[in-house]
């Protein structure tokens, strides 16, 4: 099962995903630049991604809680979702996501 993720620098990564994992967990596990500071509790919006429009209809719509959290992402658009709320299933094999600038980790201290 694949998850196709474009990072903040525009580099495309084809990630091996596992069924039942949150997209956020897959992205974090592969070491991409995702802060995900609340750890998947839909409480922070730092796992913010843009979903490729071709895939948008195949995702369940965001809950009110997710919409409320997206309000705290200053770069949210119509295509925005929190990747901790996307659970990988067979139907989502090949899902294309782009990491939002607001999902980036702080720069490492020198």
């Amino acid at each position: 099962m694949k998850l196709i993720v474009t990072d903040q620098a525009g580099v495309v990564h084809e990630l091996e995903a596992l069924e039942g994992w949150r997209a956020m967990e897959v992205i974090r596990d592969w070491g991409l630049n995702i802060k995900a500071e609340c750890g998947g509790a839909c409480s922070c919006a730092t796992c913010h991604v843009y979903v490729d429009p071709n895939w948008a209809d195949r995702l369940h719509p965001p809950t009110e809680e997710e919409e409320n959290m997206l309000d705290s992402a200053a770069d949210a658009t119509e295509e925005s979702r929190l990747s901790c709320q996307i659970i990988m299933t067979d139907e989502l094999d090949g899902l294309e996501l782009t990491l939002a600038p607001s999902a980036a980790k702080d720069e490492a201290a020198a």
Partner: peptide
């Protein structure tokens, strides 16, 4: 801008600790 809070390492990085 009012977008809530996020965690930043902040001054901890300046205290000479091995990170």
């Amino acid at each position: 801008p009012f977008f809530g809070l996020t965690m930043k390492l902040g001054p901890v990085a300046d205290w000479g600790l091995e990170l």
